[in-house]
Nucleic acid binder design. Sequence first.
DNA 1: GATGAATGAGTCTTCATTCAT
DNA 2: TATGAATGAAGACTCATTCAT
Lengths: 235, 235, 235, 235
Amino acid sequence: MGVKKVDGRLERGRRAKAAILSAAIDIFSEKGFDGTQTSEIARAAGYAESTVFLHFKNKHGLVLAIMQDFYRGLMDGANIILATTHDGEEQLVALVQHYLVELLKGWRIVRLFATIARYTEDETLEQFMEHNRAYTGLYIDIFEGLKADNTFREDVDARQLRDMLFGTIEHYAMANFTRASSPDIGVFIERTFSILFYGAKSDSSLSAASRNESGVDKKLDAILALLGDQDKKGA
Amino acid sequence: MGVKKVDGRLERGRRAKAAILSAAIDIFSEKGFDGTQTSEIARAAGYAESTVFLHFKNKHGLVLAIMQDFYRGLMDGANIILATTHDGEEQLVALVQHYLVELLKGWRIVRLFATIARYTEDETLEQFMEHNRAYTGLYIDIFEGLKADNTFREDVDARQLRDMLFGTIEHYAMANFTRASSPDIGVFIERTFSILFYGAKSDSSLSAASRNESGVDKKLDAILALLGDQDKKGA
Amino acid sequence: MGVKKVDGRLERGRRAKAAILSAAIDIFSEKGFDGTQTSEIARAAGYAESTVFLHFKNKHGLVLAIMQDFYRGLMDGANIILATTHDGEEQLVALVQHYLVELLKGWRIVRLFATIARYTEDETLEQFMEHNRAYTGLYIDIFEGLKADNTFREDVDARQLRDMLFGTIEHYAMANFTRASSPDIGVFIERTFSILFYGAKSDSSLSAASRNESGVDKKLDAILALLGDQDKKGA
Amino acid sequence: MGVKKVDGRLERGRRAKAAILSAAIDIFSEKGFDGTQTSEIARAAGYAESTVFLHFKNKHGLVLAIMQDFYRGLMDGANIILATTHDGEEQLVALVQHYLVELLKGWRIVRLFATIARYTEDETLEQFMEHNRAYTGLYIDIFEGLKADNTFREDVDARQLRDMLFGTIEHYAMANFTRASSPDIGVFIERTFSILFYGAKSDSSLSAASRNESGVDKKLDAILALLGDQDKKGA
DNA sequence: GATGAATGAGTCTTCATTCAT
DNA sequence: TATGAATGAAGACTCATTCAT
């Protein structure tokens, strides 16, 4: 019973902190860092402005806490996927799927992190880059695996691939999540990997262009020609 | 004499405006919109703070002017390329080449536009989106042309391609332009189009998945068939 | 058992109060009234901030308590000196000696009292002035005694003397106690009373000015007179 | 005429600055540094609060400006006195006279400087100490001159004398200037120098006390005795 | 007796923008 | 055209103090 009493106090504090954090996410998301007033966060959370500073050191401290929460969730999910899937390509698709879902929930705060990071040099930036490095590192590992696997060409640069993938996703998210309509993540993944894996070029084009360069096509044609001749002759 | 006076005045005004704009670009680029003070711009330009507001309506007005200048230059260059190149793929490469060079000069202000656009709903946003639409529209047109051409698969989505291309470029620019070392644009373009056109997958991998759809497989089948015939004959 | 509990509680409370008071002295001394935060006092004392207000009405209440303690100690010492010494001059020297020692221990809090008193009109000021009046009154009494005694000139103003003495001491304390090196109180007392009792002027200088009033001159005149007689006789 | 126009602008700024400074003196004097709000200063001066920060960098900047003004006036006056008076004692009296008059006008701000200096470690403290050193240095020089002169005893410590003089003056100022009644500076100077030059002791006391210690008296008595004997003998 | 949580009332300082000259 | 002066509207953050437990 005595324990319950004490817990009640702690519980109260925890609730306040959570409420403030939640309000902060909403308002930061909508208005950006500089556009958000701590007073508004407090009001939205139902507490006095000073209470914000009781639970968080700074306005920046709020962002830091939000960031930590977001990336913890993201990494937890990713690790589960990696632990339960073993094929590289499957992992890739599952991770992107998961990332897109998380991004769909929190793209506005990710956008917040990015904007802050661009014009700041302090702890916030470092934290953000650290989280990012950790997360995108998972993909690099998979890409390298797929190269070792001979699934991917060995002349493909893993970081280039990562940049293309995340660049594409970010671009997509910013462009599509803004709208009210829920985007079709499945289609996006399919299209993205279709190009990422097989390229945009059509067969006929390939034979004319790249295949000419790789020589495979020419050799095959030569073989066919030779075989045809042989055939005729033999006939 | 009266004319001269007026001309002199106009000239003087123009020079002030240009100086302020130039200073604004520098400081906005480095510190972002909210982080920049009009007083600092004025100081850097060598004019009084109030002179800034003599030539520009607003702090936002400065950004608008910068944006106009940037996109005018970008579009002018692009149009020259389009007028002097006729092959779709060549246009694509030339445009990206040009875009990267412009971006290398002004990526920090593009970043500025983007961050402002995210948390603003006014004229700045509209202008930015309008400029963007106009520019990326050029690419959409080319992509469509390449599809009509049968250079690109018909199941490829032009906007998806555009998103991938610009997403990749943006990601690359943000990641690489920050550093002092000048990045190798040629390598980047090569790698990017290599994947965009032909995909990341290796041949052996392709045989399992897409090769069935590509012509290589068919040719190999043909060869096998021919060989099979030979075999029979030889038997 | 019940009694023990209560005693224990009282004991506990007393200990907390003392700890807080002690911490308050340290921090107030170093940072002044406005520069000190109650939270810091609490932290230094090892208690929660709210506990400070359990034992003291106010931030000002802390100062009041410190003041009471300081002056109680000072007066107790002074009264012992007065009770055990009977010659006015000796009392004076002993009191100053004692005061300087106490001041050396607590000059920073005396300084605190003084600064607070200057910009406050409430209880703190009154208490401080009352304590001061009581203490310096001891000196006035001695000065008056020394005048009645004919030890001091009757045209000397007792309060003027008190002001000079305390002014000098305060000036000395503020100037010398700040440094780490322990000042030589003995030398200071000697020098101070030397000037206070006999003045700064040298004998030769005195002969021109005040010596006429002092006996030395008369005696020298007598000598001269006598010598003059001798001279005449010898002639 | 054109000049007048420009001057008008500058004049306006000067007037504002002066008004703010004047208001700041009043309010700082009454309420101390921490007790004063910049908003109140502005209100009293008839300007917006932000105008205060247009003319002064800081709240501290106000104090610094006030200090500069005060000490400039003080030093200017002192230097005139030193340039027009040549006898050390006269200089001393004239300087103290002048100092007291200045202090009577501005004792509250001097008190302000002192209180700030006690709990601050920044520029304000340094400036204050520097000004103080410069001013009291004038007195040290005079004291040394009077010692070289043999007007003062050579065993008198110049800095001790300075401390006593300024300690006394400060004590007097704080004690007497607070009251509405204008204090009699002439009487104070007379009394102070009377004790500082000749000491508090009466003649009879001197013969009994210090003279016994100094031995002068004894020697004179011995001479008298000897001469008396001689006289008797010779008679 | 002790305290964690909460807060109201500041407080200085910033900065884009206006305006008279 | 150019600007010095002036300001209103914030805006983040502080801190002594209260109170329920």
